[in-house]
Design a protein around this nucleic acid. Sequence first.
DNA 1: TCGTTTCGCTACTTCGAGTATCGAAACTGA
DNA 2: TCAGTTTCGATACTCGAAGTAGCGAAACGA
Lengths: 186, 186
Amino acid sequence: MAPDRPLGRPRSSVDATVFAATLRTVHELGYTHATVDRIAAGAGVAKTTIYRRWPSKGALMTACLVDAFGPLPVESGSRAEIMSSAVRWAAAKISEPGVGAAFAGVFTDAINDPGLREILLTQLQDPYRLVLQDLLGEPENRVLFLIDVVIGTLLHRMGMTGEPMAEADVDALAEMVVGVLPAASS
Amino acid sequence: MAPDRPLGRPRSSVDATVFAATLRTVHELGYTHATVDRIAAGAGVAKTTIYRRWPSKGALMTACLVDAFGPLPVESGSRAEIMSSAVRWAAAKISEPGVGAAFAGVFTDAINDPGLREILLTQLQDPYRLVLQDLLGEPENRVLFLIDVVIGTLLHRMGMTGEPMAEADVDALAEMVVGVLPAASS
DNA sequence: TCGTTTCGCTACTTCGAGTATCGAAACTGA
DNA sequence: TCAGTTTCGATACTCGAAGTAGCGAAACGA
C-alpha cells in the first residue's frame, strides 16, 4: 500500500551539503551576513531549493544544529560523571567552527518568533532534556535549569568574547554544575 | 574659557523619553519588530534625532540598558551576601518589561558586530565587572566567569521560554554561584 | 509517452537599517 | 534686532536580505 517512493522526481540528497555550507558560511561571515543566498551558493544549490525544505532561515539553522550536535554520547558512571561529560561535550560542540555563532544567532531570532522558538524547543532542546531526565533521574524543571546554566554560560562567553570558552573555565563550569546535583545514589 | 553652553540650538532633553519608548516598544513587539521608526514614533521624535544621538540601533539599545540597570546597589556584608544580592538584582532587572528582550537582542546583534560588541563590553559589562572585582576581591577572569554564568543563564531562560526566570530558580542560581566562591575572609 | 514532483533560474515584493537634504526653530553674541 | 550656529522634524532615498512567484527543464513511476 504505502508507496516506498512517492511520485515524481526524487529529492536530491543535498541536506548534508547544505548543512556543511551553512556552518562554513556562518563561521566565515557570521550569522547576520550568512544570508540564505550565500549559503545556497556555497552549497551549489538554488535558494528556492533551500526554502522548499526548510521554512525559514532559523529553521534551517536549527536543523543544521540538530545535525551538528547529534545524539548525546551515552556515558556510564555516576551521575556526576555523566553530568561532567555532558558539559564537556556541549562545550566541545559549541566550539566547533560556526556552531556557536549559529546557535547564538538562532537563539536570538527565536526570542521574538514564537514559531521558531517552538522549533528550537522541540527539535533541539527537548531530546536532550528527556535523555538527561532519564540518565540523571532529575525532574524536568531541574534539568531545564541545568541546561539554562550550561548552554547559557557557554553562549554568553561566545557572544561577549567571540571565542569559545577556554578549557579551564569549562572545567570550572562542569565542577560547579556537578556541585548542585543531590549527593546521589549511583 | 570652556563655554558652559555650546553654540546653537540646545539638544532637547528627550533621552529618557526615548529610552522609555524603546523598552515599551521592545516589550510590546519584540526586539526584531521594534524598529527605529516605531521607537521614534512612540517617543514623539523624528528618526533622524535618534540617529543623531546614537550611531545604531544596537548602540541605542545598549545605552537604554545602561540606563535601565543603573549602578549596582552597594551591599555590605560577606562576599556571599554581596554575590547573592547581585544575582537577585540582575534577575530583577532582566525581568523588567522589555529589558530581557532588549538585552538578548543586542547581545545577539553583537556576536558578529565587533563594533557593537566593543560598546556592549565597555559601556555595560566592564563597569559592573570592575565593581565586582573590587567588592569580591576576585581576579578578572573569575568575575568574568561569574558574569557569564549569571547573565547567560538568565538570558537563556528568557530566550527559551519568553518569560523571566521564576524566583525559586533565581534562588538556586544564587546559591550555586555563591557555592563556587572561595570560602572567604570577610 | 504521460503525469508528477523537484530542480535551477530569474524576477519580484516587502521591510528595516541607515543616510541625505532642507526649511524651521532655538539659542548666543553683537 | 540681527547674524551665526546647531538641532529639530519631515520626507525621500539607498541598500541589503528574507521570503515568494512563475517558469521551463530534468528525473522519476506507470
